[in-house]
């Protein structure tokens, strides 16, 4: 049996909003670490990996590992019935046909109970090799979102160039070209607004902007995003939460 109580339903709502345009039918894999998800998009260009750590739930009770096969459009409909500040409890049996979602307001005078039908989803899990990235850039997630939205107006793809001087996002399309360069800077008063670049060697890679714009839907989860790059491996875009993360991996464009 699973019983997992989350202080704020808004956390799960934001996670689902962040990934539901990329992946549709997913398994929530529940084990001792927490509730995890790994799924590729239909075209197998991007992969999303999510973990809500068991420490983030109180209580988190699980008798045996279970996979909850969920259609995210359906889950979104049920989660719309919760207020962001509601306490959310997820409950499921050991071989579940349904997932129970219970929403309680903070005053504890309203309890809503929903049952979501589960699906059998046969999903392959990919092993993600441990990677020492050549460059790791942390920056405000809103800034990254703005850059992606701006550049997609000119082109389908963006070249990300990380060097000691900074990180340059550049694109070129039918109407012209554009670039945004961010220099490393440390905002002492507001650390979340800092741009930090950890670099072992310069990297230049090109990615599809359509996917990056999609990843940016996770900006509500964290004010900071980390981009990790190495030549010839997928880009890692990570949004860290208090007790968990949403990570997106994007295969680079090749032969450009």
């Amino acid at each position: 049996m699973l019983e997992a109580r989350l202080e704020q339903a808004g956390v799960l709502k934001k996670v689902v909003d962040a990934i539901r345009d990329l992946v549709q039918d997913i398994n929530f894999d529940c084990n001792d670490s927490g509730i995890a998800l790994q799924a590729m998009d239909n075209s197998h260009v991007a992969l999303v990996s999510m973990l809500l750590k068991s420490e983030g739930f109180s209580p988190y009770r699980l008798d045996r590992n279970i996979a909850l096969g969920i259609n995210l459009t359906s889950l979104t409909k049920v989660l719309r019935c919760a207020q962001n500040e509601d306490i959310l409890t997820l409950k499921a049996e050991d071989t579940p046909d349904t997932l129970s979602l219970i929403f309680e307001n903070a005053e504890n005078d309203r309890i809503s109970e929903y049952e979501l039908k589960l699906m059998d989803i046969d999903q392959e899990h990919l092993g993600i090799p441990e990677t020492e990235y050549a460059a790791a850039i942390s920056m405000p997630s809103a800034e990254f979102q703005r850059i992606c939205r701006d550049l997609i107006q000119l082109s389908d793809s963006v070249t990300i160039e990380a060097s000691k001087e900074g990180v340059k996002f550049s694109c070129s399309g039918d109407i012209g070209s554009g670039s945004v360069t961010l220099r490393q800077q440390n905002n002492v008063d507001k650390p979340d607004l800092s741009t930090k670049i950890e670099l072992t060697e310069p990297v230049t890679l090109t990615f599809s902007l359509k996917y990056l714009v999609n990843f940016c839907k996770a900006s509500a989860l964290s004010s900071v995003v980390t981009l990790s790059l190495s030549n010839e491996v997928p880009l890692l875009v990570e949004y860290a939460m208090g007790s968990g993360f949403v990570r997106f991996y994007l295969a680079p464009k090749i032969g450009e």
Binding site: L47, H125, L126, G127, A251, P252, K253, I254
Partner: peptide, 14 residues
Amino acid sequence: NPGQGSINSYFFKK
């Protein structure tokens, strides 16, 4: 999707 790599070719099947 010309020139677009696939994620399967980087990560291994479990």
